[in-house]
């Protein structure tokens, strides 16, 4: 009961600020300080979102499909690499520095190359999302594996545990916290990553739609897509949090 009350209090501040900003935005747009077609008011954005909902639905599914597939592939690859890095020290020593360096390459710059290599289908989009989602999960998992209590590992070895048993009984559960921390970041990249890759070419998806409405100066619809992308990302992060809650029942919060 007390917890609930505290969470309401904690939410009041960002909610009030948000409402305030929306009010200022609405005032600026409707007073004519900024032309309405350049900065459509929040009410116009909402109505654009509702009006274009039918045509947005198809694009949304495509983008979501790309985002989720990329996320899954990225997570699977991260899992594999993290286990290999944890298990083989030479693999860790040779691969880890390269992973860090690879993060300094701007992903957006790679996107056109992916289109060049893979065409205008969904393959380059899924690849881009997978590339973006891979790193946070890999690092989170690896840190999690390393955080396993050394004395507990010794205890299990003394019980005669096999390598696999050490992973299933200690290392994997110890890594869940780090894994979900990484997954939350990756989940927030997934939809945005898919949208970015769609900008560079394709026939369907929210990114393609966004490019179209921008070219036809329908900025209210463009803002509507931005709102939609934010909502999708928030829902995805929420989903990850819920899964985390059920996979880690020993955590009190």
């Amino acid at each position: 009961m007390k917890k609930r009350y505290e969470s309401i209090i904690a939410n009041i501040y960002p909610a009030s600020l948000c409402l305030l900003l929306l009010a200022v935005w609405q005032a600026v747009s409707s007073s004519g300080l900024v032309p309405g077609y350049l900065l459509p008011s929040p009410t116009r954005v909402i109505s654009a979102l509702l009006i274009s909902a039918p045509e947005l639905a198809g694009h949304t599914w495509i983008t979501l499909f790309e985002g989720l597939s990329g996320l899954l592939i990225g997570v699977a690859a991260a899992f594999l690499i993290a286990v290999l890095m944890d298990r083989f020290i030479f693999f860790y020593r040779s691969v880890y520095p390269l992973l860090i360096i690879s993060q300094t390459v701007p992903i957006v710059a790679i996107a056109p190359l992916l289109v060049l290599w893979m065409g205008y289908g969904i393959a380059p989009k899924i690849t881009l999302v997978a590339l973006m989602c891979f790193f946070p999960v890999a690092v989170g998992l690896l840190d999690g594996f390393k955080s396993a209590d050394e004395d507990a590992l010794t205890l299990l070895r003394a019980m005669g545990a096999s390598r696999l048993q050490i992973y299933t009984h200690i290392k994997l559960p110890s890594s869940l916290g780090g894994f979900f921390a990484g997954l939350k970041i990756s989940a927030s990249y997934a939809v945005v990553g898919a949208v970015i890759s769609e900008w560079l070419g394709g026939n369907e998806g929210l990114g393609v739609y966004m490019t179209r409405v921008r070219k036809s100066y329908a900025y209210d619809k463009m803002f509507a897509v931005i709102v939609l992308v934010s909502i999708l990302s928030l829902v995805l992060i929420r989903l990850v949090k819920t899964i985390q809650k059920y996979s880690m029942p020993w955590e009190d919060n």
């Binding site: 209590d149 004395d151 507990a152 205890l155 299990l156 003394a158 019980m159 005669g160 545990a161 048993q165 009984h169 200690i170 559960p173 110890s174 869940l176 880690m248 020993w250």
Partner: peptide, 25 residues
């Protein structure tokens, strides 16, 4: 061998912690 620290695994229930040597075997 039981060390000073109890080394109960935080992510296993009490009964699963206790039964661990049997499961490992």
């Amino acid at each position: 061998y039981m060390q000073q620290k109890d080394l109960l695994l935080p992510f296993k229930t009490v009964i699963d912690n206790v039964a661990l040597p049997l499961v490992i075997r």
